[in-house]
Amino acid sequence: MRLGARTRLLFTTFAAVLMFAGLRSPAAEAAEPVVVYSARNEQLIKPIFDRFTAETGIPVRFTTADAAVLIERLSAEGKNSPADMLMTVDAGELWNAANRGLLRPTRSTILEANIPATLRDPGNRWVGLSQRARTIVYHPNRVDPRTLSTYEALADPVWRGRLCLRSSKKVYNQSLVAMMIKARGEAATEATIRGWVANLAAPAFANDNQVMEAIAAGQCDVGIVNTYYLGRMLQKQPDFPVKVFWANQRGDGTHVNVSGAGITRHARNPAGAQKLLEWLSAGEAQRLFAGSNMEYPVNPAVEIDPLVRSWGSFTPSRINIVEAGRRQATAVRVMDRAGWR
């Protein structure tokens, strides 16, 4: 039997209505859910949230987007926002959200015990959950690691035509420069960046993978990347010819950023959100949160992924990561003035 066009249209409309109706009526849930706005991707958080739900019975609902967009959304929704927690992949955005009054302070002895003070907001509005080390990488055949020392030394003319950098549009570079400004001041940092720009072997790249591929292909000899990108590369290709060098070990330590989270000002379930945050800061959750992306746990008691451990231990920066946010806008100006695109 053939259906008439009108019948088919009716059916389609009916199916569409059902679909949309289904979206608005969540199934009956035992505990009140925690709602997360996340800039960390789905594949890195869903397995962990699923585990949290299995262990505690508290469901987690989340949506993902760029942090800047999620912050505008939180701000626009105000008191009506369903979000209990904001999760980002960078401290600058957490600082920005806290600065705009979108996050609430949470006092928790568990968080204080598990997370080093430099990786937490001094106002307790957010905490880091994994560390992302951004350091120097090099080609072992063309660079003697003894000639490497600090980020700043890459501005030296010996690296002319040998340096590759990612675009200054990426927040990871903005945070690095912000922390350099805190440590050395604006003028010295600007001079360093001018040196880097003069040393570039190729226009800045769109991502860290391209920087490492350029080093491997011989377009340049050194670069600055987040180590987990190299970790992923090495998983696919164990003999990938790029090595890690821990920058600034004799001085202020290697730059680390955090992927972290805070509880929103208008959270409807702050208790559930705090429970999730505390759960993420310890044990297996902490190992998974960092390990699934080959980042470093924030909790020093938690074991590091074996491949990541093989790069050796390092001293991270001792400056509180909140400075990365506070000085980010200045960092962008410095990079613009120095011509880092």
Binding site: D66, A68, E72, N96, K169, Q328, A329, V332, R333
Partner: peptide
């Protein structure tokens, strides 16, 4: 457009 996103994402100025 990249200048626009630089102001928003980088300098927090929507």
């Amino acid at each position: 457009t990249t200048a626009l996103y630089r102001a928003w994402y980088g300098m927090f100025s929507l």
